[in-house]
Amino acid sequence: MVFGEQPAYLRVADDLRKKIVSGSLPPHTRLPSQARIREDYGVSDTVALEARKVLMAEGLVEGRSGSGTYVRERPVPRQIARSGYRPAGGSSPFRQEQVASGARGTWESRSEQVDASEEIAERLSIKPGDRVMCTRYVFRDAGEPMMLSTSWEPLAITGRTPVMLPEEGPLGGCGVAERMAAIDVIVDNVAEEVGARPGLAQEQLALGGAPGHVVLVISRTYFASGRPVETADIVVPADRYRIAYHLPVR
Rank of each mutant, 00 (worst) to 15 (best):
S117A: 06
R17A: 05
A224N: 05
P87D: 13
D115E: 13
N189T: 15
G143P: 01
A177Y: 01
A121I: 06
E230S: 10
G102L: 04
I243M: 09
R36C: 08
A116H: 00
S22C: 13
E62Q: 13
S151M: 08
R36A: 13
G159P: 00
R17E: 07
T221I: 08
M164Y: 12
A206I: 07
S109D: 14
R160A: 15
V71M: 05
Y41V: 07
E122I: 06
T135E: 09
S67H: 13
V99F: 15
G59D: 05
L148G: 02
S149A: 15
R123D: 00
F223Y: 11
I120K: 01
P128K: 10
G129K: 09
H246R: 10
V249R: 11
Y41A: 01
E192N: 13
S92Q: 01
T69C: 06
G23V: 02
V176M: 07
V187G: 02
M133D: 02
Y222D: 03
L247N: 07
K127L: 12
S91Q: 15
A238E: 10
L216H: 10
D45A: 11
R38M: 07
V236I: 06
G209W: 02
Q34F: 15
E62M: 06
P26A: 11
L49Q: 10
V2F: 11
V194C: 05
V132H: 01
E118F: 12
G89A: 10
R123M: 05
V235W: 01
A156S: 14
E167L: 14
R36V: 10
H246Q: 15
S83Q: 09
V229N: 06
M1K: 15
P228Q: 04
V235G: 00
A88S: 13
M180Q: 05
R123V: 08
G212V: 01
I126W: 03
E122K: 13
K53P: 02
R11M: 03
Y41I: 02
V190E: 09
G159Y: 05
R17H: 08
V190L: 07
Q113P: 15
K127Q: 14
L247C: 04
P170T: 15
G169R: 05
T69P: 04
G159S: 08
V21C: 12
C134Q: 11
D188Y: 12
I37C: 08
D184Q: 12
S111K: 04
P166Y: 01
G89C: 06
G172F: 05
I243R: 04
M133T: 00
R160G: 09
W107Y: 08
G89F: 07
Y245T: 11
E50K: 11
W152P: 00
Q34C: 13
Q113F: 09
E112N: 15
A156T: 13
R136N: 10
A181H: 12
P228E: 02
G102S: 06
K53F: 04
E203L: 08
S149V: 14
F3A: 15
A210H: 12
S24K: 12
G63Y: 09
R160E: 09
P166K: 03
A244Y: 15
E58R: 06
K53V: 00
R86H: 10
H28D: 08
R78L: 06
A48V: 02
A88F: 14
Y137M: 03
R78A: 12
C134H: 12
R250N: 08
G84V: 13
P248A: 14
S65V: 11
W152Q: 00
D184T: 09
K19H: 04
R82P: 01
L171F: 07
P228F: 02
F223I: 01
V187P: 03
G169S: 12
S101D: 11
V229I: 14
